[in-house]
Write a protein that binds this DNA or RNA. Sequence first.
DNA 1: CAAATAGTGTCTCTGAGACAGTATCCA
DNA 2: TGGATACTGTCTCAGAGACACTATTTG
Lengths: 224, 224
Amino acid sequence: MSYPVFAVTVDLVVLTVREGELQVLLVRRGCEPFLGEWALPGGFVLADEDLPTAARRELAEETGLDGPGGHLEQIASYGDPDRDPRGRVVTVAYLALLPDLPTPTAGTDAAEAEWRPVGELGLAFDHDRILADGVERARSKLEYTPLAAAFCPPEFTIAALRQVYEAVWGETIDPRNFHRKATSTPGFVSATGASTEGEPGRPARLFRRGEAAVLNPPLLRRGA
Amino acid sequence: MSYPVFAVTVDLVVLTVREGELQVLLVRRGCEPFLGEWALPGGFVLADEDLPTAARRELAEETGLDGPGGHLEQIASYGDPDRDPRGRVVTVAYLALLPDLPTPTAGTDAAEAEWRPVGELGLAFDHDRILADGVERARSKLEYTPLAAAFCPPEFTIAALRQVYEAVWGETIDPRNFHRKATSTPGFVSATGASTEGEPGRPARLFRRGEAAVLNPPLLRRGA
DNA sequence: CAAATAGTGTCTCTGAGACAGTATCCA
DNA sequence: TGGATACTGTCTCAGAGACACTATTTG
């Protein structure tokens, strides 16, 4: 039996919250096609490699940052016959959520890498569409999972968590109602007992991500 | 530049509601590997074919039923190196929701095909996992989209729509509350003006699927 | 008529949002 | 002390669920 031959890549939508905005990690392509243009980080799946393993490997190679605390999940696959001029390439897109780390992206594979606010960015291949799908996935996942904590360091305040929601959804949220909601929804966050120090205002209690897989009841965006 | 070579397939989780149960279309494999075992329908993506096109083609070939009224969406991709003994095969899984049609699956590709209630079915490859992911997708999509209508004929009663929810979620739902909810949620259903005739009891108004992409507010399952 | 199914009204409870008010830090 | 931020209490409104009740058909 004969069948067509494909290459398979993974592409990564790596999101973080920086400067109060949702930002995505882009790399400038160092080889053809689309040489010199901005694109999502990614690369070919190796001969004996699982798809999530390939995604984690590319994430480590491109960001230098792996370890726990973040989150990685599959978005979807894209296989238009014309999406890559080199031939038939199917890409499996992954979504990574990371805390705001001290600007990595040095000494890596890619010629250049940088964080950019999400939006219509004119990326190579079909990466604008993949980015849009990844951003929408992230937005909706914050509604019904405690995943916002993946954007925060291991211990965080309720205010920091709220600022994640405000950045990702592009909405302002009442701090008092959010506080009550976050601390009363089972499994959303768990208190560490510690508090912030040296900040102006009353010290804030520190929390870790809760164990719930799904928030019940969920938080709902206004917009949809 | 050299990179590993893959085959790409599409596999289909074709769901319908029959006899008050959520059922999935299975085929008995007519060639190696897993000859004679039950599996999800699917096949190789052709050389010049888009992924959704391949999914629609396989759906038509395996069921003989295409046309409008149903629903097709991507679930995810599966690419474990050991998932297919023939070599490196990545499969893109699609979810199809169809109304209960007069048992098709005759005169087609597959040696045999049949509807089976969903569950742990001991399928070939990693198809049990793909099926589980597809069923969970369908269950959650009914919460926040008007997609339950994809399981119904073009015109249907509110009671028929409710029975879809009961079958897919495995819960009983209060008919009176469901009726109010379905008819008052914008874009969920739209009345045709016609009614059923010849049935016992008061005639029921007929509806079509509404135009909303997302239900606001959503319906929520008890279980999660 | 009874049986059956469709559809409405109404009550209660929960949770979201608005926002006053209290608590506890820094300068 | 005042300014800032964390946190709590309380009110109101919308929607889910329970369930009594009315409407309209078949037999």
